[in-house]
Simulated scan of single mutants.
Amino acid sequence: MIWEPFDPVSYFIHVVLGFIAFGAGIVALSTQKGTSIHIRAGKVFAYLMILVALSTFAFMAYKFLPLALVLSIAVIYLIPSAINAFRNGRKFAKLWDRLLIVIPFLLCVFASMQFVRFQSIDTAPRVGPILLAATFGFLFFQDLLLLRNRERERYYWIRRHMTRMILAFTFTAMAVVRLGINVGLTLEQTVIFPTLIAWLCIAYCYKKYSPEKLTPARA
C-alpha cells in the first residue's frame, strides 16, 4: 500500500494536503496574476507546501528517499524566497535572503554528486541530476547577484517571484507523479519532463514580464 512503512493516518493527511496544495497551485498558475483568486490560491499553495515539506522530514525517519529530501528542501527555500520578492524592502526579507542562499548551493553540490555517483555505476548519462544541478546553480547565481545589489526594478522582483513559484510547483508535481500514479515513466523521466516544462514556462514568462511589456504604472 502507498503509505507503507509510514503511519496510515499521518501519511494520508500528508498526501491529502499535498494534493490540495497541488490543486491550489494549478489555480494560481492559470488565473490572472494579481487578482484576488490568484493571491488566495497562491497563499494556500505556499502555506500547505511548507507544511507538507516539513512533514516529509518526519517520514524520513522510517524510509530515506533522496529525491523527496531534495524536493522538500527546495520547496522550503523557494517559497519564502518567492514571498520575499514582494517584500524586498523589509529588513526580515533581506535577512532571510542572506540565510537562504546556502540552500541552492548545497542542493547544487548534492545533485552534482548524485550525477557523479550514477556515472560510476551506469554507462548512460543521467540527465535528471544534471538538470537539477543546473537549476539550483542558476538560483544560487541569482542570489549572489542579489546580495551585491538589491536596488532592482519592479519587473525584476516580479520575475524572481514567478521563477521560484513555478519551480516550487514543479517539484510538487514531481512528488505527485512519484506518489504512485502509473503513467509509465521512470524515476529519471519524472525529473526531466517536469523540469524542462517548468523552464519553458519560465522562459515564456520572462518574455511576458520583460520591461517593455510592463506599463509605466505597473513598473
Rank of each mutant, 00 (worst) to 15 (best):
Y47P: 01
T31E: 07
G42Q: 00
L29E: 00
T215C: 09
V102T: 15
N149G: 06
G25M: 03
S55Q: 13
I76C: 04
Y11S: 03
P104V: 02
I181H: 09
L95K: 13
A124W: 10
R154P: 02
Y156K: 06
R164I: 01
L78G: 00
I76H: 02
I26R: 01
R126G: 04
P194S: 08
Q32R: 14
T31Q: 08
V70T: 10
R150N: 08
S120E: 12
I197K: 03
I197V: 15
V27G: 04
I101V: 14
F118P: 02
Y155C: 10
A74F: 00
S36K: 15
F171K: 00
L71H: 03
I20P: 02
T195Y: 01
F6Q: 05
R148P: 05
Y209D: 02
G23V: 06
I158W: 01
K43P: 03
Q142H: 14
R218T: 05
V16I: 13
T123H: 15
S10M: 10
I2F: 14
I130R: 07
A219Q: 08
R98M: 12
V70H: 08
R159Y: 03
I202C: 00
T31P: 02
V27R: 09
A124F: 10
G137A: 04
A28N: 03
L185C: 12
I37E: 05
G18C: 06
I166H: 00
P80D: 04
M162V: 00
K91D: 13
P211W: 10
T215M: 14
T215N: 07
F86L: 14
Q114E: 15
I101Y: 06
W3S: 06
V16R: 14
P194Y: 05
G137S: 07
E188R: 05
S72T: 08
P125K: 11
Q114F: 09
V176E: 02
A134G: 08
S210Q: 10
T163V: 02
G18P: 03
L65Q: 09
Q119M: 12
L100E: 02
R152M: 07
A61N: 15
F59T: 07
T190M: 08
T56D: 07
F57W: 06
L167M: 05
